[in-house]
């Protein structure tokens, strides 16, 4: 298994350059976060990998098989997309049964069990599901499909906090039981930061960051303390974000930390991925 390899992929929509010479690799059995602002090119990239769109140039291979118009390659992955591609008049049960016909490893019993846990009425037609339950319906298929690569495009759209928590827990459980490659594209960075092994940040159709989460977060740190203490400590440092709550202040700093210089009353924590993301993707 060589994973998903993307080589020099470019895609334009009219005058808009959605992806510009993008090259990256998604290795087997890892959890990736594909992050970017609205219109950065995340969904376009996922759609090109899954043969839903064609790249203007460049190649995508899945375990060394070309992804373009290749049933065998496409059988190795599943994209849970933001856009619903299931017939709206189909019931959830029917969709599960048809998915079993297309993906031989789809676990129907597991899917029904998840539906029970999420309280999804599988007799309902897809068109009658709320935004949240449409996401849940697609999450259930994605978690039950058992393909080596599962791509999630905005998986928690419309989900309440409890259901989001449940999804993250199920994803980790599934990954622990039977490792697979998960690529998660989401705007809720704080919530998935602990799940991710690798982070890829796209900005204006180009890859800005492609690093392990650990390496990325070692580029900085956060400090918390009284406003006075924190202001003194960060005076000569590169600060990428500040939050004040009551008398307490938290600042996110880029750079290495010399622990011996940390004064009393200051608490050091890991770098906040969301803060780093905002800093990196800000246009200014």
């Amino acid at each position: 298994m060589n994973g998903i390899e993307i080589n020099n992929v470019t895609k334009t929509f009219g005058d808009t350059l959605a992806l510009n010479q993008v090259s990256l690799t998604f290795e087997p059995h890892k959890i990736y976060g594909l992050l970017g602002r609205n219109g950065a090119g995340k969904s376009t990239l996922l759609n090109i990998i899954t043969n839903r769109l064609f790249a203007d140039s460049g190649q995508v291979t899945i375990d060394d098989l070309s992804s373009v118009e290749n049933d065998m390659a496409q059988g190795l992955l599943y994209l849970m997309s933001e856009k619903n591609l299931y017939p709206e008049s189909m019931t959830c049960n029917e969709a599960f049964k048809w998915t079993k016909q297309f993906f031989k490893d789809f676990d129907l019993d597991y899917a029904l069990n998840l539906a029970k846990q999420f309280k999804l009425n599988t007799k309902k037609k897809i068109r009658s599901l709320s935004t949240g339950y449409t996401s849940i319906f697609k999450i259930i298929i994605a978690l039950s499909v058992n393909t080596p690569y599962v791509l999630f495009d905005e998986p928690v759209l419309g989900l309440d906090a409890n259901h989001r928590e449940m999804f993250y827990r199920l994803l980790i459980e599934k990954y622990s039981d039977n490792p697979f490659t998960a690529i998660i594209s989401t705007h809720l960075i704080d919530e998935i930061a602990n799940l991710l092994e690798y982070v890829m940040i796209i900005k204006n159709g180009e890859i800005l960051v492609n690093e392990s989460c650990e390496t990325l977060l070692s580029n900085g740190y956060s400090v918390t303390g009284t406003i006075k203490h924190v202001d003194t400590f960060i005076a000569d440092k590169e600060v990428i974000g500040e939050d004040v709550l009551g008398g307490l202040k938290t600042a996110t700093i880029i750079g290495s930390l010399n622990k011996s210089t940390v004064p009393e009353g200051i608490e050091i924590t890991n770098l906040d991925l969301q803060k780093l993301f905002i800093k990196l993707t800000n246009e200014e």
Partner: peptide
């Protein structure tokens, strides 16, 4: 339309 989208969702190529 429906069949095309459903096919792509399930990894079926346009040719197939």
């Amino acid at each position: 339309k429906e069949n095309f989208l459903f096919a792509l969702q399930n990894g079926i190529s346009r040719k197939s």
